[in-house]
Amino acid sequence: MGTDGAAAAIAAFYDDFGRRWARGTSPLYEDWALGIAADPEALNRLAGLPKAKQQPNLLFASIRWQGAPLVPYAELRPWLLEHWDDVVATGGTRSVQTNEANRCATWLPPLSRIDGPVALLEVGAAAGLCLYPDRYSVEYDTPSGRRRVDPAAGPSAVELTCRVDDEASVPDRSPEVVWRRGIDLDPIDASDPEAVDWLANLVWPGPDHDARVTRLRAAAAVTASDPPEIVRGDLLERVTEVAAGSPRDATLVVFHSAVLLYLEDDKRRRFADIMAGLGETIGRRVVWLSNETTGTLPEIDAAVLPGTATDHRFVQTWDAVPIALAGQHGAVYETAPFRG
C-alpha cells in the first residue's frame, strides 16, 4: 500500500475511533481522533510508523505522557508537530495495555456457569488485573434493583459496577479460582509505580473515566499482594504450552478482551483454530471466553443480528458462540440480543 493509501486507511481508522468509540464517553479523544483524521500532515507522519504504533490509544497516551495540554486538537496540533519525535519515542517503547479490572464484572456471569474449580489463563494480560474476578466486589444494577456479589472471603476494597439487562445474568457466587496465569508481549509488574502510572495514563480523559483510575490503582494493589505468573511472549506461540501447565482437575478458561483486534487477520484465524482444538491437544476441559469488537472474526459477526448496537461494546463469546454484549470497560452486560 502506498503512502497515500496508508494515510487514507489511518484516517478511516481514526474517524471510526472518534465516532464509534470515543463519542459519548471521551469528548477530548473524539475531538483528537477526528482532528487527526482530517490532518494530512499528521496522517503522513503516522503512515511512516510501524502499523502497531499507529493506533489512537497509543498515540494519545504518548501525547499525554509527554505532558501535552488537554486542549482541542486545533490547539494541540502545533505542540504535537513540535514534539512529534518525543511522542513517537514514547510510543516506540510502550504498548496499549488497557488493564480494566471492571471487565471482571462481565466475566463473572459466564464464569459462574462453570461447575467446580477453574484455572484462568488470560492472553494479553498486561499486569494481570483481570485475573482476579474472585477478589473484587461487584454492584450489579438490574431491572429490579441493585444486587451485590462479594468474594468468598468477604467484601473487597475494589468495587466494580455493571448494569445488566437480565436478573439471570447476576452470578450467585464468585468462582473458585485455583490457578491463574497470563501471557503478554510486555508483562507489567503491578508493584512498579511507573508501570502503574502508564496504565493509569492509558485511561481515557473525561468524567466517565475518572473513577477508572482510582479503581485501577486499587486493583493493582490487590494484584501486587499476590502476583500471578505472566509469561512473556506471543500468544500464538505460548498459549498451548502455558495452558498445558494448568491443573487437570480444574476447567481451564482462556479469556481475553480487545486483544485479537490488534492482530492481522491470518493471526486471528490461527488463534481461533488453536482454541478450537486446545482441549484435545492438552487433554482437559477448556472454555474459551472472548470479549472482542465486531469485525474481529467473520463467523462471530455472522451470528450478530443486523442492526444490533455494538458501539462501546464487545461481543462476548463462549467457544466462539456469542452470548452477550459487554461494555468495553465493563459497565454494561446485555444478553437480550442473543436470548432465543
Rank of each mutant, 00 (worst) to 15 (best):
L70K: 13
L70G: 10
P72R: 02
P72Q: 01
Y73A: 08
Y73I: 04
L76Y: 10
L76W: 06
R77M: 09
P78F: 11
P78D: 10
P78W: 12
W79E: 11
W79H: 07
W79C: 05
W79T: 07
E82P: 04
E82K: 15
H83T: 08
W84A: 12
D85A: 15
D86R: 15
D86Q: 15
D86M: 11
V87P: 02
V87G: 07
V87H: 07
V88I: 15
V88T: 14
V88N: 12
A89P: 03
A89V: 07
A89R: 15
T90E: 15
T90L: 09
G91E: 09
G91H: 12
G92M: 07
G92W: 09
G92D: 07
T93S: 15
T93G: 14
R94N: 14
R94E: 10
R94D: 04
V96D: 05
V96W: 08
T98V: 13
T98H: 12
T98M: 13
T98P: 06
N99E: 04
E100L: 11
E100P: 13
A101W: 03
A101F: 03
C104A: 14
C104G: 07
A105R: 13
W107V: 11
L108C: 13
L108H: 12
L108K: 12
L108T: 12
L111W: 08
S112Y: 08
S112C: 07
R113M: 11
I114S: 08
D115N: 14
D115C: 07
G116A: 13
G116M: 12
G116T: 08
V118C: 10
V118T: 12
L120V: 06
L121M: 09
L121H: 08
E122G: 14
V123F: 11
G124L: 10
A125K: 04
A127C: 10
L129T: 15
C130R: 13
C130N: 15
C130A: 14
P133T: 00
P133C: 01
P133D: 01
D134R: 09
D134A: 11
R135K: 13
R135N: 02
S137C: 04
S137L: 05
S137G: 05
S137W: 08
V138Y: 02
V138E: 06
V138P: 02
E139V: 15
E139Q: 12
E139C: 10
Y140D: 07
Y140R: 03
D141R: 13
T142Y: 03
T142K: 03
P143H: 01
S144G: 12
G145S: 05
R147P: 00
R147H: 03
R147S: 02
R147A: 05
R148P: 01
D150A: 06
P151T: 01
A152P: 01
A152K: 07
A153N: 00
A153T: 09
G154C: 03
A157F: 00
L160E: 00
L160G: 01
L160V: 03
C162H: 00
D165V: 01
D165R: 00
D166Y: 01
D166V: 00
E167M: 00
S169W: 11
V170C: 03
V170G: 01
P171T: 01
D172R: 02
